[in-house]
């Protein structure tokens, strides 16, 4: 029988299916005791609607692998950070045309009245000449950019 951890590690993010929950840093713990598996995940954003699907996908994957008793727990603290996206996850993001987040901000929170300047490259053509079109994208975790060289729009996973 495949270990519960190995099964849980195959489950992908419903919004960004190129990433597993491990790549995303959402899967915090998988505990096997007796017949029962307890999986702990942490929400990326408070209102992330993908959390329910992640929970269902984990339960289904583990049940298909023969684990009948599966609990999915939430861990709120520490809060998820984009720093938890693994190097493998970052490579996968870039391979799929998304820009990976830079280091998450720490320390006092500045008020940023000018557009955010991020040192990022277009994931398609590699140009550094990109411009932010919106800090809010199609999912809570993404900002929208456009490359000024190849003109393609792309999504950037936000630092949080």
């Amino acid at each position: 029988m495949v270990s519960a951890l190995a099964v849980a590690a195959t489950v992908t993010d419903p919004e960004m299916p190129m990433l597993t929950l491990v790549d995303l840093g959402v899967l915090r713990d998988v505990d096997e005791s007796g017949d029962r598996v307890t999986v702990t995940i942490t929400p990326t954003y408070s209102g992330c609607p993908a959390m329910a699907t992640m929970r269902d996908d984990l339960v289904h994957a583990l049940q298909d692998a023969g684990y009948d008793e599966v609990d999915v727990k939430v861990s709120l603290s520490p809060a998820w950070s984009s720093d938890w996206i693994t190097e493998h996850g970052r490579d996968r993001l870039r391979a799929h045309g998304l820009s990976a987040p830079g280091p998450a901000p720490t320390g006092p929170i500045p008020l940023t009245l000018a557009p955010v300047r991020r040192a990022i490259d277009c994931p398609r053509c590699g140009s550094a000449d990109v411009r932010l079109t919106s800090e809010f994208g199609p999912t809570a975790c993404k900002a929208m950019y456009q490359c000024s060289t190849c003109l393609e729009p792309f999504e950037h996973v936000k630092e949080i």
Binding site: P43, L76, I109, L111, K158, I160
Partner: peptide
């Protein structure tokens, strides 16, 4: 924990409104 999570989110809200 709920507040610490919210801080990260509301930071973006305040910047959006300020800009």
């Amino acid at each position: 924990a709920i507040a610490a999570k919210g801080v990260k989110e509301v930071t973006y809200h305040r910047d959006y409104a300020g800009r």
